[in-house]
């Protein structure tokens, strides 16, 4: 019987400070057993439990793309006991990863469709995974137009900046980066994500889906914009967060109504979410 509580042993392979305030770091892990990497086959949108013996586990979205082989990456905000300890860990240290967990963005449905990605702050991790996956030469032709609206407080708080600017130069993706207020040497949008979305979002159609991931305040003001633009609720896809422990639908704390965010989610359409209590 496979024990779903045992994490795969991994080594920290690289650590990068991800934002100017140093509250986020991106960790690259390699699996200590090659066979574990194969077992950890994941899809963009899934998460994993990062496990530090003696401290506990934290559910974090997978930031690397399934098309990137040999490692997995996670960008982690320093906030509690486990994340604070993780921020003190060094390259070469051993810890564990349990997963992949949860569902993923509905890639089968999204094939052949236009995709509008709306992200805010540091909730861009699984969106980065998704963009990287879609832009892979073997996948790009599978999808229609790709628009990305991504906002942060300042340019220094945008995650994966080098990649963002690189994607900005490509013809096959429309990047709409924004920061809350004017900043030196910033040549892109200025304004909150919902307002920029209203300006640049592609027209709603049966063939266009929006993926929204960000802080509650951004989501609160973005959803009315999408509705105004005509996006149907079953064409708006969101990733939810709740406190989790087991990650496999058993410990009972992450439910919103009948749905377990860890197992039935974290990805839901807005029409699904509309049927559940807003306990997230």
């Amino acid at each position: 019987m496979e024990n779903p509580y045992i994490p795969y042993p991994v080594s920290i392979d690289d650590i990068q400070i991800a934002t100017e305030d140093k509250s986020l770091k991106t960790f690259r892990f390699v699996f200590q057993n090659k066979s574990d990497e194969e077992k950890f086959a994941y899809k963009a949108g899934q998460f994993a439990e990062l496990s530090i013996p003696g401290l506990g586990e934290i559910p974090i979205g997978i930031a690397s793309s399934p098309t990137e082989k040999g490692f997995v990456t996670f960008t982690v905000f320093k906030t509690g006991k486990v994340t604070s300890h993780l921020h003190t860990m060094k390259v070469g240290d051993t810890m564990g990863i349990r997963g992949p967990l949860g569902n993923w963005y509905p890639w089968d449905t999204l094939m052949g469709k236009n995709i509008l990605i709306i992200g805010g702050g540091f909730a861009f991790t699984t969106l980065r995974s998704s963009i990287k996956m879609m832009l892979d030469p073997s996948n790009r032709s599978v999808f229609g137009n790709i628009d990305v609206v991504y906002g942060a407080r300042t340019p220094g708080m945008l995650l994966y900046k080098d990649e963002l600017f690189e994607w900005g130069k490509r013809e096959d993706i429309n990047m709409h980066l924004t920061v809350d207020t004017e900043a030196p040497n910033w040549d892109y949008h200025v304004g909150f994500t919902p307002a920029i979305t209203e300006k640049v979002a592609p027209k709603a159609s049966d063939d266009t889906y929006a993926i929204v991931c960000g802080p509650p305040i951004m989501i609160k003001f973005t959803l009315p914009v999408l509705e105004k633009l005509g996006y149907k609720h079953d064409h708006i896809i969101m990733s939810l967060e709740n406190r989790m422990k087991c990650g496999i639908g058993m410990c009972g704390r992450c439910n919103i109504g009948t749905e377990l965010v860890c197992k039935d989610g974290p990805i839901f359409t807005l029409s699904d979410i509309n049927k559940t209590p807003k306990e997230y």
Binding site: G54, E57, G252
Partner: peptide, 20 residues
């Protein structure tokens, strides 16, 4: 419903499932 906690004694530890 249950919780998961780690308890370390010196350098040896256990991951425990507790009623929650």
């Amino acid at each position: 419903c249950f919780d998961i906690q780690d308890e370390t004694y010196g350098t040896q530890g256990v991951r425990i499932k507790n009623w929650d």
